[in-house]
Design a protein around this nucleic acid. Sequence first.
DNA 1: CAGGAACGAGAGCAGTGCTCTTGACAGCGA
DNA 2: TCGCTGTCAAGAGCACTGCTCTCGTTCCTG
Lengths: 233, 233
Amino acid sequence: MTDTALPRTARERARAEITAEILASARRQMAAEGAAAISLRAVARDLGMVSSAVYRYFPSRDDLLTRLIIEAYDALGDAVDAADASRPREDFVGRWMAVSHAIRDWGLAHPHEWALIYGSPVPGYAAPDDTIGPGTRASVTMTRLLVEALMAGVLPPAEEVPRKVSRSMRSLKAFIPVPVPDSYLVAGLMARTQIFGHVTLELDGQFNATIDDPHAYFDHVARMSARQMGFAG
Amino acid sequence: MTDTALPRTARERARAEITAEILASARRQMAAEGAAAISLRAVARDLGMVSSAVYRYFPSRDDLLTRLIIEAYDALGDAVDAADASRPREDFVGRWMAVSHAIRDWGLAHPHEWALIYGSPVPGYAAPDDTIGPGTRASVTMTRLLVEALMAGVLPPAEEVPRKVSRSMRSLKAFIPVPVPDSYLVAGLMARTQIFGHVTLELDGQFNATIDDPHAYFDHVARMSARQMGFAG
DNA sequence: CAGGAACGAGAGCAGTGCTCTTGACAGCGA
DNA sequence: TCGCTGTCAAGAGCACTGCTCTCGTTCCTG
């Protein structure tokens, strides 16, 4: 979960503490002004040190951003897993609803973090490989939900899917331990796109002048997407 | 379409030309490095003038970005309208497919423009009111398509929608000249979210390791979303 | 043709990420 | 306990940014 073992020497303790303080200050700055506005000099000022000292802890601004991205992915993953665990295993619709609302709630509570991980990347930034692991946590949980519903036999009959589309999902199938009919995979991916796409569009203000009660509307969207996946509802 | 009347004096001609050159240079810079990396000084260097001279044409960097946003919205709107017009009026599925592919194609061709208008805004930037008009063009076209299908009588029977959800769409209904059953509105909004959400996620690389043939997969998604809206297919 | 508006050039301010050097200190082995 | 080694904060400095102000010049118009 956290870093390595407990720090031993005073030096290591201090290093861990200052690292945490830098991250906290950067998070504060991101919450206030957005990820792109994070400034190492402002962090340094905030902590009462000089800008060059920060580079002892993070070799570059991009490394700081990477840490923040990983933490954001993990925070969202934790929220999603907690929501999934809060419902009875066999209540697939309830689990899907809980997961969907957890995703939206987290996004509304952390708009800049959401933009950081799902929005367009910061100027010259390219996400390193460290981020793909935690980045898939929410999707993995949603896929697991679909697979469990399939194994429970509560899904309607599968449908035909064009061969080209079926072949196009070979890489996806390699990640899933049990065989899943193509039409379920498509439905699951589309439901995932519906949820993440909705939150992104809502945070971007695309529903501003059209939807008066976003929570009620999203609740309906989540329920409809569960139904379109074949979950009874 | 373009600016005002044809320029009269030599000064006005020059001003219009230089303004266009500034926009072109900024567009080039955006295509290369992203919108947030647009620098007025680099634009000035590119055009062989001094940085302060650019401020004679755009009072601030944000005004330049606003112009680029409006142009991007309009370019996407043109592409969408052209795609819609390319199919027979009564071929609603074909029109929806053409519009969907036009949106994705434009996004793939102009990823930074897409990020500019649908991604998280640049640091301190807040989109002014000038952008909401062109910003809704694509959505307006998609909604018109739905309304025409409704009036043609090709949609299946409407369904019940929770009262809270129905009431939540009052603002939306104010924009639509004819009464549309609530379930159609929800279906239309969800289809729109599916298309825009898909393109955003695809541009963000969220399908990278899972979907091998994004074009074929998206074509299927567009067809399925048309079906979920009730379009025969 | 004279006045005023528009314009390009340049200097300058405050801010940024990042590098390099300097001197101080902690932690370790001898 | 002494001295070496690696870590650290501090400061100066480079190249860059958006933006402002002033200065002549040039162009358009009354």
